[in-house]
Amino acid sequence: MTVALEIKNVSHRFGDFTALDDVSLNINSGDFTVLLGLNGAGKTTLYSLITRLYNNNSGSIQIYGFDVREDSVNALKNIGVVFQQPTLDLDLSVRENLQYHSSLHGISSLDANKRIDNEIVRIKLEDKIKNKIRSLSGGQRRRVEIARSLLHKPKLLLLDEPTVGLDIGSRQMILDHVKTLCKKNNLAVLWATHLIDEIDKGEKVIIIDKGKVLESGDVSKVIKKTKTKNIRDAFNKLVGIK
C-alpha cells in the first residue's frame, strides 16, 4: 500500500502558543481517514502546514514521497484541498471559478472544460454551471469546491471541516460523495471534523487535542484500546469530556 501522506515529528508554535506538538501520522492511498478534534485542536494549522501556507519548522511532511518544503511543486501537485472557509469567487460563475482553478494548475482550456463537464455531472449541478456562486446554496457551493479540488486529479484530498454550517441532507450527500470518490479512485482522504457522527466503523481515525495526536488507527482498534463502547465514548475519554 502506498503512503500518501507521511508526517513525522511536526511541531508548530505561534508565539508562546503551541498549536501542534510533535505530530506524526500516516495516511495510505485509498484510506478515508477522519481527523477528529474539537475546535482549536490544531486541525487547520496542520492543514496549513501540509499545503505549505506555513512552513514546517520542525519534522517533515511528505506527500507521495515528495517533501513539502524541499519539493513543494511535486508535493502540491498531488493535493486537492477544500478549506474550512468558503473560497469561491462569489461574483464569478461556477464554470469561471473552475476554469480559474484549472489555470492555477496549468491545465489547458480545452482539457479544463472537459474535466469541468465531467466533475459537474458527478456533483449533479449541470444546470447551475452558468450561475454565479452567489446564487447557490451552502451545500451546492461545497460540492463545487469539492469538484474544484479534483480538477487537477490529485491523489490526496484534504477537507477541513467541509460540512460545517450545512443542513443534515447536504452533509450526508457530501460525505457520501467523498467516500465514493475515495473507494472508486483510490484517493487518500483526510477529513477534518469535530462531528463524531461523520465517522463509520470501518474507517480510520486520528484523534487530536491541544496540538497532540492522542490516538490513531482503525475505529474499532481505537474503541478497543480505550475500552469504550463506541467512538464517541472513546473520543470523550481521550479528550477528557465527561
Binding site: L53, F83, P86, T87, L104
Partner: peptide, 18 residues
C-alpha cells in the same frame, strides 16, 4: 480573510510567479 487567496497560494506553481 474570505479564503480565496489560499486557493492561489496552494497552487504548485511558484509563489513569486503567482
Amino acid at each position: 480573510e474570505m479564503g480565496s487567496m489560499k486557493t492561489m497560494l496552494v497552487s504548485p506553481i511558484p509563489r513569486w510567479f503567482l
